[in-house]
C-alpha cells in the first residue's frame, strides 16, 4: 500500500509514465500533469460530463476516477479526435450545425458522441439523446447537438 504510485498510461497514442499521488483524479492527471487541457471540469461531481474521456474503449467521466485506476490503460481525449489540421466529420458537423456556443461542454459531447457512433453507427434520435444523457450543455438547448450527431452519422455511413 502506498500514497503514490508509478503509472504508465497511453493518451492519444503517446505513453506517459509518471509518479502520481493516489488521491489525484484522472482529470487532473490529464490536464495538469500531461497538459492536455481539452477535457474540462464542470461540476466535479459526475453530473455534467465535461470531463468525459474514453478509457480502453469505454466512455467515462474522468473526474470520477483516480489516475492510479487508469494505470496500464489507453485513453482517448478530445485532442486525439483530429488528425492534423483537418476537422474530422463529427467535429465539422458540430461546426456546421452550430452545436456549440461557449464550447465548454463540447469536448465531453464529442467524446460521448464518438463512443455512441462507434457502438451504434446509425442511432435514432432517441438513441442519440440516451447516448448524450450524461452530458449537460448550458447554452445550445441540445437540438443543434442532436442534429450534428445525426448528420455526422449520415456522412460517416456514406
Amino acid at each position: 500500500m502506498s500514497s503514490s504510485r508509478q503509472i504508465a498510461v497511453t493518451i492519444n497514442g503517446t505513453v506517459y509514465e509518471r509518479e502520481v499521488e493516489a488521491r489525484k483524479l484522472l482529470i487532473h492527471f490529464i490536464r495538469d500533469d500531461v497538459d492536455l487541457t481539452g477535457s474540462h471540469i464542470g461540476c466535479d461531481t459526475g453530473n455534467c460530463g465535461a470531463c468525459s474521456v474514453i478509457v480502453d474503449g469505454t466512455l467515462v467521466k474522468s473526474c470520477m476516477m483516480l489516475a492510479v485506476q487508469a494505470d496500464g490503460s489507453s485513453i482517448e481525449t478530445v485532442e486525439g479526435l483530429a488528425n492534423g489540421d483537418e476537422l474530422p466529420v463529427l467535429q465539422q458537423a458540430f461546426s456546421d450545425h452550430h452545436a456549440l456556443q461557449c464550447g465548454y461542454c463540447t469536448p465531453g459531447m464529442l467524446m460521448s458522441a464518438t463512443a455512441l457512433l462507434r457502438m451504434n453507427p446509425k442511432p435514432s434520435e432517441d438513441e442519440i439523446k440516451k447516448g448524450l444523457q450524461g452530458n449537460i450543455c448550458r447554452c445550445t438547448g441540445y437540438w443543434n447537438i442532436f442534429e450534428a450527431v445525426s448528420a455526422a452519422a449520415e456522412r460517416m455511413s456514406e
Binding site: G49, K61, M64, S112, A115, L116, Q133, G134
Partner: peptide
C-alpha cells in the same frame, strides 16, 4: 441508472 458513463463504471 443515470447515464452511459455512470453505467460503464
Amino acid at each position: 441508472i443515470a447515464d452511459v458513463q455512470v453505467r460503464n463504471r
